[in-house]
Structure formats: C-alpha cells, structure tokens
Design a protein around this nucleic acid. Structure first.
Lengths: 189, 189
DNA sequence: GTCCCTATTTATAACGG
DNA sequence: TCCGTTATAAATAGGGA
C-alpha cells in the first residue's frame, strides 16, 4: 500500500526496516482497537521491534488476557475456525482450568520476584547484568548451539514423519487464530 | 473500507458482529505476518471472539513471545531511559535469554504433544484434544523448526563475534544465575 | 454461517522538510 | 530521526449466491 508495491520479504536496510516496523505496528494496533470496539472482543498483542524493544497493546491489562489464554493452551484447545460455537460443557471446563492456571501463574511470578529481590540484595545483580563477554560464555554458546542442532534434527524428523501420516495431512490448514484486544504499552517511548 | 463507512462503535447485531470479527481478525493476522516477515520482529496476538473462543497468532511459539514479555516485567528491567535505544549489551543479553526460552518452550511443547498423543492412543482424551494435537503439532513444529533455524544463525553469528574478542577470559564466571544448568540439561528427552 | 465480488475507505511506501 | 504529504496498494462493508 504505497507508492510502490513491495515484496513481503525481509528488509535489509536498517532504517527502512525501522520505519516500516513503526508504521505497521501502529497500523496493527489501530486495527486491534477497532476490532475491540466493534465486536467487544478481547485482544492482546505483544511485539518486539527489530531492536528488541517491547510494545504491547490490549483493551484489558495484557496479563489478564495472556493468563486467560495460557490456562487454555495447555489443554491444546483448538482455535479452530469453522467449528462454530463451543459447547457449554467445554466452556466450563476451560473456565475451570483457567482459574487453576491463573493461580499457578501467580505463584510462579511470586517466586521469580522473590528470587530477583534476593539476587539484588546479595549484590549479585539481576541476571541480565551478568557479564557474558567471556570465554565461558563462548563455550556455553557452543554447547547450546550443538544442543539446538540436535533438537532441530529431531524436529525435522518428527515433521517429516508426521507429513507422511495420512490422517495428519493438513499441511495447508491455516494456522488459525482469532482475537485481539488492545491497550498500549510502550516502555521506551 | 467498504461500500459504506461505518462508525467505530459496538455492533449490536450479533451475526454482523461475528462476520466483522472474522474478517478483521483475518486482516490483523495477515498484517502481523507481514510485519514479521518484513522486519523480523516477533509478534504474538491473543484474542477471544465475542463468543469466547480463543485465537492466537505468532511467528514463534506463542508462549515464547509471551514469556519474553513477562520475564522482563518480572525482573523489573528498567524502562531504559528516554534515549530511545537500549545498550547493545543489554539487547544481546535479552535476545540471548529469549533464545534460551525458546528452547524451553520447545521442550514444553514437545511434552504436551507427547501427552496429547498418549491420550489419543489411550482414547482417554477429549475429542478436541486428540483432534487438534495432530494438526496443531505439525504446524507448530514447523514454526518451531523455523524459529530454531533463526536462533541458530543468531547464535552462530554471536559465537563468531565473541571468538574475536580478546578481553574475555573468565573461565569461571557463571553465565547466568538463573537456575539453568546446562550440563544437566537434556533437551527434549 | 460461507464464499465471492467490488465500490469505497484505509493503510502505507516513497519523499520532502 | 521524526513529521507531513500523496500516489497507490490493501482491507473490507454490504450484497448476492
């Protein structure tokens, strides 16, 4: 949409990429706003710019929407498109699981906060302050790299295997998702 | 954008609202896909339709992006001055931690898949769990595979870069005091 | 509820300051 | 780098099948 049509592929020019990210992020957030206002749907968007800066958008507190989702995701409930509406039974199961899940998330969060506080008190700093420009890091990185390759090959095998199974041949089934909320959060601006 | 302009306010007619949600959801997901491809940005969208059905979209496992966001919140990472940009070091640390999380997510996801499959085999799962586990697994695995390759190249680059740094010879500096113990980790198994 | 069509409205790529 | 402007590409509201 512009003076010229551009191919949807990675932009290499850094500044152009930055501009595109800004404009399109704004566009998506705007669309999310409209969706929420028009249909009353909840929507949360979390995105990280090419520079690693976080931006979020939600019509409710981001975490509330995220938790609602996390509680269900573990059960692999299908965000399927053409299924129509869910049964009352299914809805209740989801809701129940959601409540349990929220409690777990809260507990986990508390632990992490405690830990961060402890680390700070002991003068060990936050984890991200740890120096990584050292030989050890290099070694660790190589280990991770290797582990990752191993994982990759496993996944490759798995994907390959699954692709050959008849009742799993839905390669062209689109990854369906629905929903949006918004509320904007921008730490760095 | 249509035959007539419509005001951005709540639609009361149920079926019309449903149609609008569907169309616009698709539009936003499409935009998100483009954003990711064009700029390489990570983006996760979680939304709930007016009927309460969840739909998500992400260029990586949703949990991975969500976690990246939540983790920053947890650790109280300072909103980084108003310079508009974060230090290169910090950015790298964050990115690196994110990559680690992706691996964690992969493991978790793998377990879920295993579980779903087991349940299906035993016929003890709910129909939607069994049904989706097959389809979702393939799509998700492909996504993970792609994310993996991306992460690998990033780490490769970093390893390469670090190899050239002279002042990094602190063998026993612990990489990250975050409870991760690489030596004892067995990926995906 | 689902597609498809297309008149219109929006989003936005390339510029200019 | 950050705002406007403008020509064009895309998204989509209302309909029809």
């Amino acid at each position: 949409m512009g003076r010229h049509k551009i191919p949807i592929e990675h932009i290499n020019e850094k500044s152009k990429k930055q501009v595109t990210f800004s404009k399109r992020r704004q566009g998506i957030f705007s669309k999310a706003t409209e969706l929420s206002k028009l249909t009353g749907a909840d929507i949360a968007i979390i995105t990280f710019s090419p520079g690693g800066r976080p931006f979020t958008f939600s019509n409710k507190p981001v975490e509330s929407v995220v938790h609602r989702y996390l509680s269900q995701d573990h059960y692999n409930i299908p965000p399927l498109v053409n299924t129509g509406s869910i049964s009352e039974e299914e809805r209740l199961v989801r809701q129940y699981m959601d409540e349990i899940r929220v409690l777990e998330e809260v507990k986990k969060r508390e632990k992490e906060i405690q830990k961060a506080k402890r680390m700070r008190k002991e003068g060990s700093g936050f984890w991200w302050e740890a120096e990584i420009s050292c030989e050890t890091s290099l070694v660790e990185l190589e280990k991770i790299r290797d582990a990752m390759l191993e994982v990759k090959s496993k996944i490759d095998k798995r994907v390959e295997k699954m692709s050959t199974i008849d009742d799993c041949l839905w390669d062209d089934v689109e990854f369906i998702d629905d929903g949006y909320n918004w509320d904007e959060h921008s730490w760095l601006n």
